[in-house]
């Protein structure tokens, strides 16, 4: 089974981004450099976010931009920001949702990734764990925390 890749270079902790576009551009350009996605992935993510936004008003608000197109390998990335950036609500609630954690990922074969997706869903429901990610001060700390949560289902490098 293909594991979801989680590369240290795709962990962005306590960044000073001010818009969701900055977050998406930053992550997608590194993912492209790593060969995880091609140049059209970013466009797909942005388009998806416009048509079907991914801001979730969970215990700790998050956003999870993701698509399965123009993506060579399934991967996970995490961005945390010093000041919240606005995303639109996934459920169509009017207005903007300020989020502090952005999980941006690509899933090539969702049926192969069910276990890690379940882990991820459990993480989204877990206020304590999400707070631990927000509170991580360094890439190292964020990486270890995510590895602990997602376990053997990711290929960490």
């Amino acid at each position: 089974m293909e594991k979801m890749k989680m590369n240290k270079e795709l962990l962005f902790i306590k960044k000073n981004f001010t818009t969701k576009e900055e977050v998406i551009n930053n992550t997608c350009s590194i993912a492209e450099r790593l060969g995880y996605v091609n140049e059209n992935f970013k466009t797909d993510i942005i388009k998806r976010e416009q048509e079907f936004p991914t801001g979730l008003d969970t215990a700790v608000p998050i956003a999870m931009p993701h698509v399965g197109t123009n993506c060579n390998t399934s991967f996970m990335s995490i961005t945390t920001v010093e000041k919240p950036v606005n995303f639109k609500y996934m459920d169509g609630t009017e207005g903007e949702l300020p989020v502090e954690i952005i999980f941006l990922f690509g899933i090539v074969h969702p049926e192969d990734q069910m276990e890690v997706l379940k882990k991820l869903t459990a993480l989204f429901r877990d206020e304590n764990r999400l707070n631990r990610i927000i509170n991580a001060q360094t890439n190292e700390e964020g990486f270890e925390t995510m590895k602990e949560f997602l376990g053997d289902f990711v290929e960490a490098s």
Partner: peptide, 25 residues
């Protein structure tokens, strides 16, 4: 549905927003 929509079905099949099954809220 698990995302935002105001779409309705042409045959009148009911549409429910089920995002809470995802978030748990």
């Amino acid at each position: 549905v698990t995302g935002k929509t105001s779409a309705t079905n042409d045959e009148g099949i009911p549409v429910m927003i089920g995002i809470s099954l995802f978030t748990g809220v």
